[in-house]
Write a protein that binds this DNA or RNA. Structure first.
Lengths: 203, 203
DNA sequence: CATATTTTATACCGTTTCGCATAAAAATCT
DNA sequence: AGATTTTTATGCGAAACGGTATAAAATATG
């Protein structure tokens, strides 16, 4: 019969935590340059445990990507609070993004997806798929807010929500790349502001 | 005394050609995943020859980055022909970029710099420097054309050339990422058009 | 308490990695 | 022609790589 606890020796780790630690390694080094030794050390799991729980290196990386994607969507929907004006929403999206992108020990890490998944996208179809899907989901979430903005009159009636959403994302992609390239916070914040102005109209 | 030809056995290869072939490998696989065996095969040079001529793998990669940067700047300045209207210039920049980004055997390769250098930017300071410098040079070239546009009245007098240039670049960064993520040509061309509209004003 | 099941720990395996040592080959210089 | 210089070719070698075999440890089941 079934029992609550499953049989056998219990795991001495939390899968979510382990994926988070692995994500840090992948974020700094990229997929290819991250060795299983490093991942094993960072997660405090032996390699056999890593394999038993997550499969091979690519699957662990895909889990980390998926985890990041979910976190990002959560942050995005927080930022797009419909109780606030569109302009504030968009500014909040960029501010929250920059907070993440500018974090890092040796240098600003940028966006985990854009900075590391792009490099592998040609050779690993599954990584390319996650990357593409993530970008689209992001666009779609912003698009919904843009549609609401058109309904409410925050944007002109002839504005195309899908197009504006992709442009809003474009600014964020640029913030991601530039952060990792070493741009200063000031430069990036200025780009964010001008992006808001361009899309929402100058204040 | 000195002679035109230098002493010793002459090289059986052209350095520029070799860097170009290496660039193809790095572009598809990224820096870390590109092995010296693969590079040696693609360039048809033995590893000792590669080392003698270019140094280690990172230096060869930096040469490839620099080569790409120069090519890109050439393409950019062709596209920004001041004899043509700003709108056509910008459309041309994006069209030429997409032509490059959408090329590839198994999948669209995107931008060599953005797709592969970002991944290494944290661990390799020199790569980060080249990446940052390249993005800035690109912005600056567009900025110059924007300044001319303000002088000529193609843009309103209160338009800020530096800001507009960074936004124009932002759209291109997004094209680069999205191309590598598997977006269709149509989607990317639509983004390019809306970018032109947003920056130059809707036609 | 014995058995079954799952996770952990150690150690290992074959392969690939980067980089170089060594020597042959091809040119110029004296 | 012989010496010198530089490039090419072969192949090595130590280290790191991803992945796994094996056995001990820790739990649930009967």
């Amino acid at each position: 019969m079934k029992s609550e606890k499953k049989q056998g020796r219990p795991r001495a780790f939390d899968a979510k935590t382990v994926i988070g630690r692995a994500r840090e390694v992948f974020w700094d080094k990229g997929f290819s340059a991250a060795s299983l030794d490093t991942l094993s050390a960072a997660t405090k799991l032996n390699r056999p445990s890593l394999y038993g729980a997550f499969g091979d290196k690519e699957e662990l990386y895909l889990d980390a990507l998926e985890d990041y994607r979910e976190d990002s969507m959560d942050v995005l929907s927080e930022a797009l609070d419909p109780a606030l004006p569109l302009r504030e929403n968009l500014a909040s999206v960029y501010a929250r993004a920059l907070k993440i992108y500018l974090h890092g020990d040796t240098a600003a890490r940028g966006c985990f997806l854009i900075s590391t998944a792009t490099a592998e996208a040609i050779q690993h179809a599954r990584i390319r798929e996650v990357l593409g899907r993530s970008l689209n989901d992001f666009d779609d979430a912003i698009k919904e807010r843009m549609e609401l903005a058109v309904e409410r009159g925050e944007l002109p009636t002839d504005a195309d929500p899908a197009t504006l959403a992709r442009l809003a994302s474009a600014v964020m992609h640029s913030l991601a790349v530039r952060a990792r390239a070493g741009d200063t916070r000031e430069t990036l914040e200025a780009l964010a502001r001008s992006g808001v102005d361009l899309i929402c109209g100058r204040k």
